[in-house]
Simulated scan of single mutants.
Amino acid sequence: MPVFSKGDKVEVCSKEEGFLGSYYEATVLSSLNNNTRYKVRYKNLVEEEDQTRPLVEVVWADEVRPMPPPVIVNRADGVFSYLERVDAFDNDGWWAGSITGKQGLKYWVYFETTGDELAYDASRLRNHIEWRDYHWVSFKKRF
């Protein structure tokens, strides 16, 4: 398990029902309990009571991964292939899905976790990669 330090930019995986598998950008504020938990401040999520304040919470270490490499965050050419695995930025986080079609300048993305199929501009999509065994792994197609 990687060890993160105060100030590190990370992504936190949600394990809440309805948000399973989505990732949210955050900054590590501190490590707790011998790096088994981290206190993080989210970039895009806000507190329910005061929506001007970023949400701060304590998460388990297995819910935290480094930020993906910037070179593969967004496709430079904006072109994705049928059934290619992508992450779509929606509801303040990144959600994994597969390209199911293209209509004009928008791509249709199917999300297995929710059963939804939604259209996105290429600027809101990035190549899907997974953090496995302490390194990034690319999965071009799901099926």
Results as ranks from 00 to 15, higher is better:
residue 33 N to A: 05
residue 62 D to E: 11
residue 133 D to H: 09
residue 76 A to L: 11
residue 13 C to G: 11
residue 20 L to F: 05
residue 132 R to Q: 11
residue 22 S to A: 15
residue 54 P to E: 09
residue 119 A to Y: 04
residue 110 Y to Q: 07
residue 131 W to S: 02
residue 17 E to A: 13
residue 24 Y to P: 03
residue 81 S to Y: 13
residue 74 N to D: 09
residue 80 F to N: 03
residue 88 A to N: 00
residue 134 Y to A: 11
residue 77 D to T: 14
residue 65 R to V: 06
residue 32 L to F: 00
residue 128 H to E: 10
residue 73 V to Y: 05
residue 122 A to C: 12
residue 109 V to K: 00
residue 43 K to D: 05
residue 37 R to N: 04
residue 101 G to M: 12
residue 10 V to T: 05
residue 89 F to D: 05
residue 120 Y to M: 08
residue 78 G to S: 07
residue 30 S to E: 07
residue 67 M to R: 15
residue 136 W to A: 10
residue 101 G to R: 09
residue 61 A to H: 07
residue 108 W to C: 09
residue 26 A to Q: 06
residue 127 N to G: 13
residue 6 K to L: 09
residue 57 E to N: 08
residue 90 D to N: 14
residue 22 S to I: 00
residue 76 A to D: 11
residue 72 I to R: 01
residue 34 N to C: 12
residue 103 Q to V: 01
residue 132 R to H: 14
residue 102 K to P: 03
residue 108 W to K: 11
residue 141 K to C: 07
residue 128 H to M: 15
residue 92 D to W: 08
residue 44 N to A: 13
residue 49 E to P: 07
residue 52 T to N: 08
residue 127 N to M: 15
residue 38 Y to G: 04
residue 121 D to Y: 11
residue 6 K to C: 10
residue 23 Y to R: 03
residue 53 R to C: 05
residue 123 S to T: 10
residue 2 P to G: 01
residue 12 V to R: 01
